[in-house]
């Protein structure tokens, strides 16, 4: 859906217990869109062009993570808008809400090792044709054009396939500022963004997993280590239409030099989350 004029308006919903709503709003502003704070207790989407459900611990994870928030008044509007094609992104707790609201398949359970995990996590962007991931394809093309042969610092990351254990990629293949690695084998962009959750184990029925894999609906996959027992190393999924995307890691925490993950170039210089928000801008603005 195009926007007639002005910067796209992106709503960020605050629930009781949301933590990363302001971070998400900041990421939205950094790519030039307008962040619109939305409140869980209303039915008012305030005419936004896209919606982000942020991370946190809505309702203290009571009942199930995201379950009670998925019944909030505003979620009825979010579901209707998502079904009409509006871009909706769920990060961490927001991803849990999207599965609870049946906008995305599967569910999230407690990490298999039982511990809360907080780390900079390498991911492969498996699907770069969604409203929220197309920017990774564009950024990868720019990078290849700049680098010529494109044999960048992340080339060695291709050695570890999905689920490959080991520590090789933990520090050595961190991406450069405003730039990221791509697998030499598949060309799929590889990024490093923070991951922090206690209930991030993605599960679904065997049929659902087969469908996700068969139809290319796995949007993000964990690299190097599976941090929480997710089936098929799945870190994020998209719906078939590509407007609804959910992921456990936090792109909004890797959008500004000085505050992101460490990279090979400098401490905390990683901004691999930025293309995700830029993707949205590209999908909203008329071509």
């Amino acid at each position: 859906m195009g926007v007639a004029s002005g910067a796209p308006r992106v709503g960020v919903v605050t629930f009781p217990g949301s933590l990363d709503d302001r971070d998400a709003a900041r990421a939205v502003r950094l790519v030039g869109a307008t962040a619109v704070p939305l409140w869980h207790g209303t039915h008012d989407l305030e005419g936004v062009d896209a919606i982000i459900l942020p991370g946190g611990f809505s309702y203290g994870d009571y009942l199930r993570a995201g379950a009670i928030a998925s019944l909030s008044p505003i979620m009825a509007e979010v579901v209707t808008a998502a079904e009409a094609g509006m871009p909706v992104l769920g990060i961490c707790n927001g991803f849990q809400m999207l599965t609870e609201a049946h906008l995305l398949p599967g569910g999230l359970i407690r990490n298999d090792h039982g511990n809360f995990i907080c780390r900079d996590q390498r991911l492969r962007v498996e699907n770069t044709s969604t409203a929220w991931t197309s920017g990774y394809a564009a950024a990868a093309r720019d990078r290849a054009a700049l680098a010529g042969t494109g044999d960048g610092p992340g080339g060695s990351g291709a050695a570890g396939g999905p689920g490959a254990s080991g520590t090789a990629g933990r520090s050595g293949t961190a991406s450069a500022t405003g730039d990221f690695a791509s697998s030499a084998a598949s060309g799929a962009p590889e990024i490093t963004i923070p991951l922090k959750n206690g209930e991030g184990g993605y599960i679904a029925s065997a049929e659902t997993i087969a469908r996700l894999e068969g139809e290319g609906l796995v949007a993000f996959r964990y690299l190097d280590v599976n941090p929480n027992g997710s089936m098929n190393d799945i870190a994020g999924v998209t719906n078939a239409r590509g407007n609804v995307v959910g992921l456990m890691p936090h792109p909004e925490h890797a959008v500004e030099p000085g505050f992101g993950p460490d990279t090979a170039l400098a401490m905390r210089s990683g901004i691999d989350g930025l293309p995700l928000f830029a993707s949205l801008l590209a999908s909203l603005l008329p071509a």
Binding site: L63, R64, A67, L71, T99, E100, P105, G106, G107, I109, I203, A204, S205
Partner: peptide, 8 residues
């Protein structure tokens, strides 16, 4: 519908 998530 609510008390259980039949997916998990």
């Amino acid at each position: 519908e609510l008390l259980a998530n039949l997916v998990i």
